[in-house]
Write a protein that binds this DNA or RNA. Structure first.
Lengths: 235, 235
DNA sequence: ATTGTAATATTGAATAGACATATTGGACAG
DNA sequence: CTGTCCAATATGTCTATTCAATATTACAAT
């Protein structure tokens, strides 16, 4: 077993120690850290162990690594916050409320100019334009407006969106490789007032997402939440 | 060198293949995956390689792993979006604008009731209450209102916040172990109108953050951005 | 001076083997 | 049937070694 004084040190310990040293200014922002080999010697472990620790610290944004150059402390340490993007159904059910979905509008049309420009589509590209509502305990929770690119997802033409939300349908039917999410704050316009039962100008939280399948746009969606909605994360 | 047909497969390839199989339903949600040893045999690589692939997929939220039980596809695949939380100075400078900071107010006082309750402080806890502005090219960019717990950070009493923003001061002086971030949408009130040069009721994007050092609250801050601000991430 | 090239240092990744740790499920006693 | 204990097993981690990728540096050729 080995006695208490020489407990083996793992990549966790190394991470902690490196973080401590950076915090204490022993390794200043911008400075070059010892090489993996030197650190392995210092900590009395294999280089792979140091490598894993440093790799995770780089992932976390504390340090930057480059082959041959070495590892250095980032000058302005970036913090990341990871938010869970739930399915609306889940978000509602997690609150302990009853979820209900309703399709408001579905049409096949040529993409409007602003959509074409925002998504870099070809002119005259056909899209499915969908509007729908998500309710929590029969009170409006989220208004969703979505454009699905037909040439990427032809199956949407036969999809039944009366009972299943487009998000759930897409999740089951269409894989995607990339996504971009934007969070913002918008004022309720006439349509939003009606659907979200609020008054003109009310500040609302909006999440927009575009998804791609290998450089072809799959869909662009705007989800606007009821008044007072927020997103929280801990780390 | 080996010929082209037997290129070595790496953990990246394994990740991709697992993702593909889950998407295609070959491995259904909730189902148990083969063990690392079996997968290593299938892919013709070492178990450590499979391990890394699966570890990252678990990190990503696609699968769940438990010792002895094995690895299974998550029933409701959670998507995470990771947002970069920059220092305001950086955010402004990254836009190519000139950053300017101004302290608006600093006082030492007993924490107001709502702060005590929100942060679970003891009654009569002393806090530094700070208000300040961040400008981009001399136009308002962000209004910051902050409460710093003196018993956790006594050094704040001597901090010079005329030239350095509290955020930067804290970053250099005080480590923290946990943080909670909340994003929301708020209407501009009288104070916000004045500082952010906007009109009453304008929807604004707000980021709130509480940080702890080992279960002791360090600070709570509310950062409200100018009209039109948004946060974007790609994954 | 500039450009090309080769040597070299450092991280990135894979392998095979070993031990550690948590958890399940069964054997067994009560 | 119930609770306890133990063995089997899958993941978690570490080691030592090898090779690959890549950025830097030095130096030579133009």
């Amino acid at each position: 077993m080995g006695n208490a004084s020489d407990a083996k040190i793992g990549f966790h310990d190394i991470k902690q120690e490196v973080i401590r040293r950076v915090h204490r200014g022993i390794w200043a922002p911008g400075s070059l850290l010892p090489t993996e080999i030197e650190l392995a010697a210092e900590f009395g472990c294999a280089r792979a162990t140091v490598n894993r620790a440093m790799r995770e610290l780089a992932e976390q944004g504390l340090v930057e690594r480059k082959r041959k150059s070495g590892t250095r402390v980032k000058t302005s340490p970036v913090r990341y916050a990871r938010f869970e993007i739930e399915l609306v159904r889940r978000a509602v059910e997690d609150m302990g409320a009853k979820y209900r979905y309703a399709l408001v509008h579905k049409s096949i049309e040529a993409a409007p100019d602003w959509v074409i420009s925002q998504l870099s589509l070809g002119p005259g590209e056909q899209v499915a334009h969908i509007k729908c509502m998500h309710y929590a305990d029969n009170r409006p929770f989220q208004y969703e407006e979505r454009w699905i690119i037909i040439s990427t997802v032809p199956a949407i033409l036969e999809a039944d969106l009366e009972t299943q939300s487009p998000n759930e349908w897409l999740l089951n039917e269409v894989p995607f490789t990339d996504a971009e999410i934007t969070l913002s704050s918008v004022a309720a316009d006439a349509a939003l007032c009606e659907f979200l039962a609020t008054s003109q100008g009310t500040p609302l939280f909006r999440l927009e997402r575009t998804t791609w399948l290998d450089s072809k746009v799959v869909t662009y969606v705007r989800m606007t939440f009821r008044q007072g909605h927020s997103m929280t994360t801990r780390y």
